[in-house]
Design a protein around this nucleic acid. Structure first.
Length: 406
RNA sequence: GCGUAGAUCGGAUAGCGGCUAUUCCAGCAGACUGUAAAUCUGCGGCCCAAUGGGCAUCGGGGGUUCGAGUCCCUCUCUACGCA
């Protein structure tokens, strides 16, 4: 519990704020975009590149690293920072998202963010036919069947915390159940009770095993798209104390209908204590980042910049583009002419188009560097705009171009 | 000239008398939000009163058959072998 958070300036009329989180491995100036390095690697990017992009913090994943190479091995390596040669701040996710992604969402087209409300209609819900069951939830924990080799693993809050302590990130998360928006209010409520019980167990166990250089622990707000559940969750976690000690900060989780995300975040942040950092889990498209910041989110992590980059979609100030499309074959301009990233300073659309068509590994690297720079800079710009009292202008001028879709 | 084997979408292939011609690659487009992901999805001949329907199509031509990419004849071309 070595986390200091200070607010430098608030966004007038909204919940947003600019601040600084201090961790044992350095500071995070917020709002900040944190990149995902699931298996102790930001896919296709090395540490020097992460640094050069301006990324302040990397989030790795408990579930994946527990399965491979094992948290004990990473502990033996001296922890994640040393193992992956990343000296800056780190977070680890608890495995709660895999309860969702390998569970209800597995193979059924339910995502972190969903478009349209059809999913909510019972008759439109996808069935389980022919799919392996990889997740079984009970009140004490979750049985995962490894997606790698089918072996069974039982995760409890205590186990997740143990693993995360071994991994050694600066900020760790309580074990939670990320639910699908297709679930009924009744189920969401039951799942929320479970997530709260696990939050308490996570905190208890964390305190019990913490030594001097213990990580900071964030509790995770759930509750789907229901105002009373989101608020109940925020209140419960805000009030939760074990031996007088509460969470160091909070995560906001869930799988959303696109239009529900902002309100769910706002409900939670109206209740969560102002003086502790709030992390919005798994959100990273520009429009969502703006919504998050306005509604009081300090940090975000998301796979979007790297996954999009690796699969040929690049962010530009005029919207997202498929760099592999044939209109870029002989386009010798950079991905984004105003971008200062390594990729845009040195390479053309034509070259990156060629790399993708030729299936060169460098394609994913260059596109990921650009996308990470784009998103990181976008959020850094939001911070600066809050500090300068120009947030609305910043937002307006961004979307004026971004939605033009040239 | 003779013999042998072939010719199926841009390329490579499957099919061995039966209804909707297979798959892969390339091509074109799309998706991706706490990473089952350097992955996945759709399209791929022509026509139309197009959320659907119609007509084609297996080198060319002819034939056998209720029915032919598939069997037969013939021509063309390709590869290999022999002169």
């Amino acid at each position: 519990m070595s986390l200091k958070f200070t607010i430098a300036k608030k966004l007038s009329g909204r919940l947003g704020r600019a601040g600084v989180i201090e961790t044992p491995h350095g500071i995070i100036e917020t709002p900040a975009f944190i990149t995902v390095g699931t298996k102790a690697a930001v896919k296709s990017i090395n540490s020097d590149q992460i640094k050069e992009i301006g990324i302040q913090c990397v989030l790795a994943n408990t579930y994946h690293l527990y399965l491979q190479p094992g948290d004990e091995l990473i502990k033996k390596a001296g922890g994640l920072h040393s193992f992956m040669n990343w000296p800056g701040p780190m977070m680890t996710d608890s495995g709660g998202f895999q309860v969702f992604s390998l569970g209800v969402a597995f193979g059924k087209g339910i995502a972190k963010m969903n478009k349209g409300r059809e999913l909510l209609l019972p008759e439109a819900r996808p069935d389980d036919e022919g799919l392996p069951k990889l997740v079984t939830i009970d009140n004490d924990g979750v049985m995962f069947r490894s997606h790698l080799d089918g072996s069974a693993h039982y995760f409890t809050p205590e186990k997740s915390i143990d693993i995360q302590h071994n991994l050694g990130a600066d900020i760790i998360f309580a074990f939670d159940e990320c639910t699908s928006p297709t679930e009924s209010v009744h189920y969401q409520s039951q799942a929320l009770d479970r997530t709260h019980r696990w939050a308490k167990k996570s905190l208890e166990h964390h305190i019990k095993i913490s030594k001097k250089e213990a990580p900071a622990l964030f509790g995770i707000v759930q509750g789907g798209r229901h105002e009373h559940l989101r608020k109940e969750s925020a209140q419960y976690l805000a009030d939760l104390k074990v031996d007088g000690v509460g969470f160091d900060g909070f995560g906001i989780g869930g799988s959303f209908e696109k239009e529900d995300m902002g309100t769910a975040v706002e409900w939670a942040n109206q209740i969560l204590p102002e003086n502790k950092p709030r992390h919005l889990l798994g959100i990273g498209e520009p429009e969502d980042l703006f919504q998050g910041v306005e509604n009081g989110v300090d940090t975000f992590d998301c796979v979007a910049p790297t996954r999009n980059g690796r699969t040929g979609t690049v962010y530009t100030c005029f919207g997202k583009k498929h760099i592999e499309n044939n209109c870029y074959i002989d386009d010798f301009s950079p991905i984004d002419k105003d971008c200062k990233c390594y990729t845009c300073r040195n390479y053309t659309r034509a070259y990156i188009n060629h790399l993708f068509r030729g299936k060169e590994m460098l394609a994913g690297t260059l596109a990921s560097i650009h996308n990470l720079y784009f998103v990181t800079s976008l959020v850094a710009g939001m911070r600066q705009a809050i500090l300068n009292d120009t947030f609305n202008e910043y937002k307006e001028s961004f979307f004026k171009k971004y939605n033009e879709k040239l």
